[in-house]
Design a protein around this nucleic acid. Sequence first.
DNA 1: CTGAAAGCGCTTACAG
DNA 2: CTGAAAGCGCTTACAG
Lengths: 351, 351
Amino acid sequence: MSPRKTRIKDIARMAGVSIGTVDRVIHNRGEVAEKTKKKILQILKETNYSPNVLAQVLKSKKSYHIVSLLPEPTEANSFWKKHPIGMERAIDELDPFPLALTQVTFDLQSEEDFQNKTATVINLKPDGVILAPIFKSESIAFCKHLSKDKIPYVFIDGFIENTDFLAYIGENIFQSGRVAGQLLDMVTDEKKDILVVNIARNIQNVHHLNNRTLGFLSFFENTAVNKGKKINITISDPSSKTIRTDMDKVIEENPGIGSIFISGSKSYLIALYLEEIGLKSINLIGYDLLDLNVKYLKLGITRFLIGQRPEEQSYKGIKKLFEYLSLNKIPDKIEYLPVDIVTSENVDFFL
Amino acid sequence: MSPRKTRIKDIARMAGVSIGTVDRVIHNRGEVAEKTKKKILQILKETNYSPNVLAQVLKSKKSYHIVSLLPEPTEANSFWKKHPIGMERAIDELDPFPLALTQVTFDLQSEEDFQNKTATVINLKPDGVILAPIFKSESIAFCKHLSKDKIPYVFIDGFIENTDFLAYIGENIFQSGRVAGQLLDMVTDEKKDILVVNIARNIQNVHHLNNRTLGFLSFFENTAVNKGKKINITISDPSSKTIRTDMDKVIEENPGIGSIFISGSKSYLIALYLEEIGLKSINLIGYDLLDLNVKYLKLGITRFLIGQRPEEQSYKGIKKLFEYLSLNKIPDKIEYLPVDIVTSENVDFFL
DNA sequence: CTGAAAGCGCTTACAG
DNA sequence: CTGAAAGCGCTTACAG
């Protein structure tokens, strides 16, 4: 297999120069006669030289500093608890390589806090950034700043077009809506109606909820068996009182509802509601393996959860940044992770 | 974060000896006065010393040799094509670390070939082995030999109890049967019957088909809604003629069949049969993302496929062996990978 | 039983 | 513009 790797020493011998000169050419540090440089470049190419990373790292002690800017996980949104775990795992695995991670978090409810924290990140002078671009306009401004400073950044959870990101790792949001559509179509009586519930203060701004709903509905436009009505509501306040009022109303007005699609991660709120009013015949599908969502999945009130591998998102984010920084490896720009279909019988494997 | 790592040099200074002596203690190479040794061990402990792997590898050039013994992938069983990919990826990722892999394959249909190949593996004097223990008694003999030679081995795809394996990475076979049961229960009319099809020359010997079927049936014993009959047949020969004869018979005798569970990876054979006789109302579920299985999934003839992440199995196998060999890290003995539920809408993410 | 030295492949000053 | 030397942290002979 390995025909013994070419070393700088070998290149130097072949070119009739010292290793210092070879090193200067390799790293383009100048101070080399044009003629010598050409010759060395030629040999480098012929021998297909690549440096011994071990020796490089051992010598240089240069540590890359990666900063993450992700939402602060809360009781109600334990989804974001998974991301730090993935990042730590990546760093563990990269172990002997010098990599420092600073985690900055922001309040998922506050554009202002997000904006302040982007300034914090900039001040840390990172070599690379991992970012969940929750707030669009603020994110765009931040990305511009990073580009200007030549700091590479990776999106997870969602991405913004026309920015200069190094990579995106996460869900294909539209398609995950279609998967949910297909599953509900399978378990819903052909003539029953289907309710789409978005829970969000301002649905306009929540890009991925919109996109999922679009994907979900698209499945019924061209592929599904179900012929029932599709009802679409937005609940602007996740308090149990508002949920009850809004849900009571829609269910009374639409007695034919057979299934409910919740476009975000708060399906447990609807499951709780259905449990309270004792309506067990309705099929529920939602997103993300929050503890409360899993509880209702295991209770049989929620039929399916769709998982989007939060831990793998951030794990791969770190890995790709590191490979780019240390080996100059350009990753695939968009990596869609599988849309996981989770039921009470396979959920334990995902926890 | 890092308070600068303790080096051998530091230990030596603290103990008032030279670095050579410290090294002798660390590697237990003897030739050290008991008193000195004690002192150094004490300091090692206090400082929580761990070596710089970079420097270690750079110096030693010791390359670990891993040998895999897996079935030869064939047209009909492209499942085993995925494993080499996973292993190559692991080696790529481990890059600067010296790791050689030799892949030995055997004929999935031949106990004799398997046995011959175990001898081949032994002759290669590997530092570690990755093994799919397809044939039980032959595998046990092989494992005994490996244990005697103190060669660590990792199982994938299945494992044999009471052997001295380092780790197993793969499916929870029984549980994956339950998942299939749950899915079919969801899409099958309560009163319809369910057919279980095993395709195998000798069903006795095919442990995992049995186990899956047991898991599948267990779901209907204690959890399912479906009240129909459960019919269980074994087709001993995968030729299309035998399939047709056997299937014609069972369908004629059981007109109430609403769904079919295929315990192995050859669901495409049954899908092809259903396509030919034009029976489209039956729900089909099977295993593994073979090209042909995926074809019938996309055509809508197969409802669900269950995936078991073949690539990840072997990827993790290599990683765990390497970590054990180089860092002496003992892995979790059994790691069940998630049971993936795959439909026509999410299958592309898994390919 | 112990220490001093050489060397793994690379990078970084420094001398000329 | 170029070369020789020191050193990253470890391991491996070798001398005593």
